[in-house]
């Protein structure tokens, strides 16, 4: 297997040109998929016999929660890549994805709260999943705060990579401890996601909207990365050509 693609990733210029034609299709495809999954789930999927119509919020809650975790996983891995191989694109990726991940976590929290009101009677329950998403959200905010506080680019790159890697190592422990803590304090009687034997007409739209949100986030991340690359490499000639190509 050839590893040239891996080394090419070290060059922001190569990445910019490679990803330029990719961002818009991904984003568009993601939007369509998400919309399709949402409409199917909200309007046509059968009603849940236990929770009624309120369960339909899972079509946004579950994809957002999955994305929030996937984004953090990606952050941690690229932090590791940066610390080990000094790959220039990795900190750009972290800077681009962290706010997106934070928004996903916030979406999961808000939709969870909205679902909680009719189901549990309160906006917030210290349920294991909600609590770990809350912690995840705080972890994202920490990364963003650190990124914004450090003015020196070299230091910010390293610092954010370090905290992402430490977060990646810690996340399973935090999740496990929160779940364990929850059993001790007796939380919700039934949860949002663990429905035994969900019928196909219920989980297929869920799958579609999850895939849609993945593509949407990937497109968004590529866009944000391209902008960041242009900002960071603004002194180099290829950026000047790139900007001048479309006129001012």
């Amino acid at each position: 297997m050839s590893w040239t693609w891996f080394h090419k990733l070290g060059s922001p210029k190569w990445f910019f040109h490679w990803s330029k034609s990719l961002a818009l299709p991904l984003f568009g495809f993601g939007c369509i998929c998400l919309l399709f999954g949402l409409v199917w789930g909200v309007a046509f999927a059968p009603e849940d016999y236990q929770q009624g119509n309120s369960f339909r919020i899972i079509y946004i809650h579950v994809p957002a929660a999955i994305l929030a975790q996937s984004c953090y996983l990606a952050l941690g891995l690229s932090g590791l890549v940066f610390l080990v191989w000094q790959m220039k694109i990795a900190p750009i990726f972290i800077k681009a994805v962290a706010p997106v991940g934070a928004v996903m976590a916030l979406m999961a929290l808000v939709s969870g709260a909205i679902w909680g009101k009719p189901t549990w009677g309160t906006w917030w329950v210290w349920d294991a999943r909600l609590t770990s998403v809350l912690v995840l959200f705080l972890l994202y905010m920490g990364i963003i705060a650190l990124q914004n506080s450090l003015n020196d680019v070299t230091l910010a790159n390293k610092a954010v990579a370090v905290i992402s890697v430490v977060g990646l190592i810690n996340l399973p422990i935090i999740k496990y401890s929160v779940e364990w803590w929850n059993t001790l304090h007796q939380g919700a009687t039934f949860t949002l996601t663990e429905k035994p034997a969900m019928p196909a007409e219920m989980w297929v739209p869920l799958l579609i909207s999850t895939i849609g949100l993945y593509c949407l986030v990937a497109g968004l991340a590529l866009w944000r990365m391209q902008t960041e690359i242009l900002i960071r490499e603004h002194r180099s000639n290829w950026v000047k050509q790139e900007v001048m190509k479309d006129g001012l």
Partner: peptide
């Protein structure tokens, strides 16, 4: 900033 960064990592220790 240190508080914001580190408190989530302290949760498992506090819980256990």
């Amino acid at each position: 900033l240190v508080m914001l960064l580190m408190l989530p990592f302290y949760l498992p220790v506090i819980i256990f």
